[in-house]
Design a binder for these strands. Sequence first.
DNA 1: TGTTAGCACTCAGAGAGAACGAGTGCTAAC
DNA 2: GTTAGCACTCGTTCTCTCTGAGTGCTAACA
Lengths: 349, 349
Amino acid sequence: MELGDRKKKILQLIIESYIETAEPVGSRYIAKKNDLSLSPATIRNEMADLEEMGYLEQPHTSAGRVPSQAGYRFYVDQLMERYFMTMADMERVNQALKLQTEEIDKIIARVCQVMSDVTDFTTVAVTPKHDKSRIKKLDLVMIDAHSFLAVIVTDNAIVKNKLFRTSGTIDEKALKLFSGLLNQTLTNISIGSITLDMINSLKKAVPEYANELIPVLNFVHEVVTQLDRSNLYMKGANNILKYPEFADLDKARSFIEFLEDGEAVSEIIKKVPDGAEQTSIIIGSENNNPHMAGSSLILRTYKIDDTAYGCLGLIGPIRMDYRKAVSDIEYFGRRLSLLFEEIFHGGET
Amino acid sequence: MELGDRKKKILQLIIESYIETAEPVGSRYIAKKNDLSLSPATIRNEMADLEEMGYLEQPHTSAGRVPSQAGYRFYVDQLMERYFMTMADMERVNQALKLQTEEIDKIIARVCQVMSDVTDFTTVAVTPKHDKSRIKKLDLVMIDAHSFLAVIVTDNAIVKNKLFRTSGTIDEKALKLFSGLLNQTLTNISIGSITLDMINSLKKAVPEYANELIPVLNFVHEVVTQLDRSNLYMKGANNILKYPEFADLDKARSFIEFLEDGEAVSEIIKKVPDGAEQTSIIIGSENNNPHMAGSSLILRTYKIDDTAYGCLGLIGPIRMDYRKAVSDIEYFGRRLSLLFEEIFHGGET
DNA sequence: TGTTAGCACTCAGAGAGAACGAGTGCTAAC
DNA sequence: GTTAGCACTCGTTCTCTCTGAGTGCTAACA
């Protein structure tokens, strides 16, 4: 059966009312609420049809209707109107983002935090893999006679460091030698192409300093592996406590624990196609994870540079305000892409 | 009135039973539970006395007794027996801590996380002020013709960095000049003694490069201010959902929000005397914050080095297992002090 | 043919009251 | 000083009824 305009309108009204109030919607309410000028009885007929088609459900005989998962899907695909973020929220976002520039990952973590504050949802953010970036400089800074610090800087300004203690005393000269060696071999090639063999071969280059060098090489390997992987940030997991869906405390707590583990969410996000700035809406059980069957995800990719994309996400109950969520996340995604554009190709700071 | 041994024993039993079950404790239960071999009636007399003295309270006539704040205080000061952390928990802690060495703040954040997992409490950790540490090296790494990265390394291995973009092109020579200038003036003196004047005076040294240098100087100032301040980490705020005290969802949520703000907790921790490794127990309204009147804090200082102390904390309901909490936090404190001892004065890595 | 008024029916939720039982304080006897 | 006995309190739980929002169906209407 094809959905007539009137049915569409009714479905939309029901869904939007339910999103707002979390209460089953009755025919009377719809009849009064708007300009269709139809009697409750007529609305009831239409609602019965919509239920038959699978877009609505009835918690029990004497309750109103509630959107089904298919109902939300139809709404999101065909009925949902565009929403615009309020100026106040935009201002808030801009304020939060205009703080000092810092490490990429920290910027992303902060966006995640702000997004959770603004949207009242649990937010996640995946940092890009840095397998395409290159080590720009590998510095060994002497701290005292028994310790030095290794600092790795990449061409997209990621800095990793680690302190080392040595058994014997070390001197600047040995450190210079090491760092020369390391810089020679490992800089200016993409992280993804650095292999364990390459790193290991360096061990043989200075056998007399092997004791000191091996831990440094392990560190390099660790950093390379780390950068080759994307990272998941999650903020505001306890925002779910704001939704009546999670009024049951045990349910809420175990869901928060499940979320904070991060594994499952990562799994879902991985399936988002890479390489284009776009928004995905995953409703309820569409995510194929029984623990999250009652939740929806809105995902949005963002661009770091031509070789790296990351992903932002909102997690909320199925009955979430998709209009607002989509508009919000798109704003954040755009802002973030823009910010990186500025950082990497923009004017002066 | 002085507390006889029998009264003490009864008080202890009541408190420990209440800590375990969160249910008011009746006379029958105490009479049966243990070897006092007294009848419920006798226990009731004693309980009435203890209530009169202010150590116990009655939620209502027909309920059992519940410890008062004064009761917990007396328990903590005089009755509480030593408890030893289980080997399993210790093992868990050691596993979590033996991962790679990294930035001090990150180690502390991780300890905070592990502590929250092991204890089921909300945990906080204050990183030490680094006002006594010194800038060891200030490096400017050229990234491309229009950008460079400033990296600051302190003598206790803290690394801060920031990316800068320049309007004109820059060359290695100018960067060398800058970094020479900066290193000359700012290294090897304690962070606390670096003044804004000192930083500003550098602006005049190379007027021709002022445009490029000023942002860097601002960054230096920012880092110095940051290091001069202690940082608060908080983990497991939603652990409070595990306690029946927070069965009311709204209460729980607003308390979590209040906690995560961090301000109030910082305020309380500030009052802990610095400079010695010790445990403080702050019960209920003793913390002087109405929002936290229903919670207790266990605080433990730890030592980074002779000039810097930090603080770990557990936050839970007043009815918390003080025995276990104290033992746990002391173990973590000791482990952390030890870890830093190793990092800064220990053998090889 | 679509719309509507009318009506019987369903069922969750609120409220009232009764029964229960855990616990108390007091008294009197041991 | 201790304990058995007993009346009393009061939160909790259960049952029952009542209420009202909402439904589906039927028959009349435009």
